[in-house]
Design a protein around this nucleic acid. Structure first.
Lengths: 221, 221
DNA sequence: ACTCGGAATTGAACACGTTCGAAAAAGGAG
DNA sequence: CTCCTTTTTCGAACGTGTTCAATTCCGAGT
């Protein structure tokens, strides 16, 4: 894709929308590159002209879900709620959005985990996407009353995002109908996380929390 | 593999050792099933007679590493050390054993993450392998002085194993030479975890810790 | 209007993981 | 030994993701 713009943008979009539809309708494995290309009335070679790999197409789904998560969650957050409730909303909205794709949740992680590519939630190359995901938690933290202690306020969103990653992992393995167990986990974990934040005010605890924050910061290179 | 024993056991072992060698020498992707079969002087079909998939072969590597981790770590643990030091040893030994395979660390996770198969560290089907991994931490906990609070002693090994999984994830992304950053992380995190355990004695903290333990237990179904 | 150069498209081809039907080897019972 | 079943081996073949040389398309410069 050398030139910045062109009417081939339409082809690209068509491929994305086709791919996402097939992913939703037939799952990850049944949706072959040939099938996507055929459904979009282009050759397989053309599909590869726009997307470097099948994973790259899944990456589009990933971004799409992230945006949907954001646009669904933000309006549900009300200023002044306590952190636990806000977290509950953000997390539940998250698994709600992912729900239709539960059957290939593991493929998500497979792709997300690769240290290469822009998809990985951890790799340095996806710092932008990660920051955007974390900003959702930052918003929740900012809206919460009472406000979390200043000492951790800046790092809390990232920590909460890590927790979200853990819950996502649980979700992948959750074979209960409608992933009801994940919902229960969230309902319990959200207020718990909130309590932990409050706890960090305690003088004894604060020392260690500061150590932990330092540790996390250290991992950022 | 219907019959329990046979001299075909030798063929199986040959395939395993060949595969592990090629994995070590050429990495994950360069080591094709055809290459493994050829190096073991059998047909690709035969390789599939013994192993359902390439992942299955990686699973053998996984188990091999786990045993090596165990047999290297256990003799290094001394009764009476504090938990932080014991943890440091277990964790460092772990990443040490994995070291030679760092280049396909992500493949490990890819395979481990699949909700199917016996490989997954979380899936219910690999309860045995997971229990064995956790037992290494149980040993460390049992040897530590002072002993962790009774309230969490039983669940602590599993929690520590989760921490180990997190560190492994960090290790996968650690591109520093010899994964030195992961070593630093371990050296900091181990005493920190130990301090957290001590903290759980505090009356205020204990309540929440009990909630967390309940939560973890709940996730076990 | 013509040419030219890059953008876009194509379908065949490759390598890989995996499957499969059939054949060879290995036992075991008579 | 012979027959029959079971285990083991084989290699061709399939479907997939991906690559690539070749071709067509299209717009800008003259």
């Amino acid at each position: 894709m050398p030139s910045p713009t062109a009417k081939s943008e339409a082809t690209r979009e068509l491929l994305v929308s086709t791919a996402l539809r097939l992913f939703r309708e037939h799952g990850y494995e049944k949706t072959t590159m040939r099938a996507i290309a055929a459904a979009a009335d282009v050759s397989t070679g053309s599909a590869y002209y726009y997307f470097a790999s099948k994973d790259d197409l899944v990456h589009e789904l990933y971004r799409s879900l992230q945006e949907e998560h954001r646009s669904l969650a933000l309006p549900r957050l009300r200023e002044g709620q306590n952190l636990g409730e806000l977290l509950r909303i953000v997390l539940n909205t998250g698994v709600g959005v992912m729900g239709p794709y539960h059957d290939f949740g593991s493929n998500f992680i497979n792709i997300a985990i690769k240290p290469s590519a822009t998809t990985s939630p951890f790799g340095s190359e996806s710092a932008v996407a990660r920051a955007r995901a974390i900003s959702l938690f930052r918003q929740a933290v900012a809206m919460s009353r009472p406000q979390p202690p200043l000492a951790i306020r800046d790092d809390l969103p990232e920590l909460l995002w890590y927790a979200y990653m853990g819950i996502t992992l649980f979700w992948v393995y959750d074979s209960s109908p409608d992933q009801i167990r994940t919902r229960r986990l969230i309902d319990q974990a959200a207020p718990l996380l909130s309590k932990l934040v409050i706890l960090s005010r305690l003088p004894v605890v604060r020392k260690i929390v500061e150590d932990i924050v330092q540790l996390i910061r250290g991992t950022r290179q």
